[in-house]
Design a binder for these strands. Structure first.
Lengths: 193, 193
DNA sequence: GCCTTAATGCAAATATTTTGCGTTAAGAAT
DNA sequence: ATTCTTAACGCAAAATATTTGCATTAAGGC
C-alpha cells in the first residue's frame, strides 16, 4: 500500500531550493536589475526580462504571477540589508550616521523606485518586511548602546518621528530630506545641550 | 495665407472640456469606482472598465495611457476633498477631529488602495497633490484659529509628526493607527496640562 | 451656420498573458 | 549509487490585452 507523504506531519521541504530553481531566480533578478538600471524606469516588460535572463516568459508568470509581484520581490531583495550599521562608538552618532545614509538611499531615484515597487504590490507583508529591516537596524544600534552601558533610545519614537517624516517627504513631496533636516528630526530624540 | 493658431500667444483652450469628453471621463471614473468596489481589488482590467463605461478600450488607452495611470487619476479625484474640515469652535478640537477622521479614512481598505494607486504611478506630481490636500485642510483650520484670535500651530510640524507617522503605519505596517495613537501624536502639538 | 481639429469608434495588427502537455531535475527513499 | 516522485521548467497554441491606422463625431472658434 502507498504511504502518502502528506501523512507525515514533519514534512521537511515541499518547495525546491536547490540548483536550477535558484539559478533561474538569480538570473531573473539580475535581468530585472539590469533592465531597471537603463530604460529610465517603466516600459519594462516580462518578455524583455525573460529574454535577458534566458528564460521562458511562462516561467516568470508561473513563479511570480505578474510583473509587479516580480518587481516587488526584487525590490525587497535589494532593500534587504547586507551589513549592520557602522559602529561609530556611541549611540547618538551611530543613529545619526545610520539615518543620514538611510535618507540618502531612500531619496535617490533607485530608492524611490524600489519603495514604489514594494508598495504597489497587493501582496501583504512585503512593505512590513521592509519596515522590519529598518527596525532591525535600530535594534542593533540599541543593543550596542546597552553593551556600552549607554541608555538606549525608544525605537518606536525614532520610527514615528524620524523615519516616518523622511519617508513621507520622499513619497509625497518632491523635496528630498537633506542631512540638515534629518539632524533636526534627530534633535528631538537627542536634545542638544 | 494661412494663419497658424500656434502663432497666437493668447491661445485659449487647446484641450476639449465640454460635453462628450466630460461625459466619457465621468463614465470611466464611475466604472472604475464600481468595479473597484467589488472584485476585492486587483484583476480589474481596461477592457472590463471600458465595457462597464460603454466605451472602446482604445479610448481609455489614448486618454490615460495605461491602467495604473487611470487608477491613479481616479484615486486623486476620490482623495480630493469635497468639504472643509468640521468647525468645532477651537483649533485643538478642530485638528484632533480632522486627524481622527483622516486616519480612519486612510487606514480603511479603500483608503489604502487609493494611496497605493497614487503612489504606484510614475507620473510625478500626483502624490504631491494628495499631500497638498492635507496641507490645505491644515491651513484652513489654522486660518480659522487666527480669525478666532487663537495661536495657530506649525503646519510642517503636524505633517512631520502627526500625518507622516500615521501614513507610515498604514503603508508599511499591518497595524492601523487607532484614535488613541493619533491623540498621543497630537499631544506633542498640544501638550496636555 | 461653417470651419478646424481634438476626441472618439472601429477593426486590424501586434504584444502580452494564460494554459495544456511533455520534459527536466531536486529531493527523498531504497 | 540508483530509482522514484513530483515541483519546476520549456514549448507552443490559445486567449487576452494593447497599439495603431483611418473614418467619423462633435467642441470651440469664427
Amino acid at each position: 500500500m502507498l504511504r502518502l507523504p502528506e501523512n507525515d506531519v514533519t514534512v521537511k521541504e515541499r518547495v525546491r531550493i536547490g540548483g536550477r530553481s535558484a539559478r533561474i531566480q538569480s538570473a531573473v533578478h539580475d535581468a530585472v536589475r539590469k533592465l531597471g538600471a537603463l530604460s529610465t524606469r517603466n516600459q519594462i516588460t516580462v518578455p524583455q526580462i525573460a529574454a535577458e535572463a534566458g528564460v521562458t516568459p511562462s516561467t516568470i508568470y508561473r513563479r511570480w504571477g505578474d510583473l509587479s509581484a516580480l518587481l516587488a520581490d526584487v525590490a525587497v531583495a535589494r532593500l534587504r540589508p547586507i551589513a549592520d550599521p557602522d559602529d561609530t562608538g556611541a549611540v547618538e552618532s551611530d543613529l545619526r550616521a545610520f539615518i543620514e545614509q538611510y535618507a540618502e538611499e531612500m531619496s535617490s531615484p533607485v530608492g524611490q523606485a524600489l519603495m514604489r515597487d514594494v508598495l504597489s504590490t497587493s501582496r501583504q507583508g512585503l512593505p512590513g518586511a521592509c519596515a522590519g529591516f529598518t527596525c532591525d537596524h535600530l535594534t542593533t544600534i540599541n543593543a550596542r548602546a546597552k553593551a556600552r552601558g549607554e541608555t538606549p533610545f525608544d525605537i518606536d519614537e525614532v520610527i514615528d518621528h524620524v523615519v516616518a517624516p523622511i519617508i513621507y517627504r520622499v513619497l509625497f513631496s518632491d523635496r528630498i530630506p537633506t542631512p540638515d533636516y534629518c539632524n533636526r528630526l534627530l534633535d528631538r530624540i537627542f536634545p542638544p545641550a
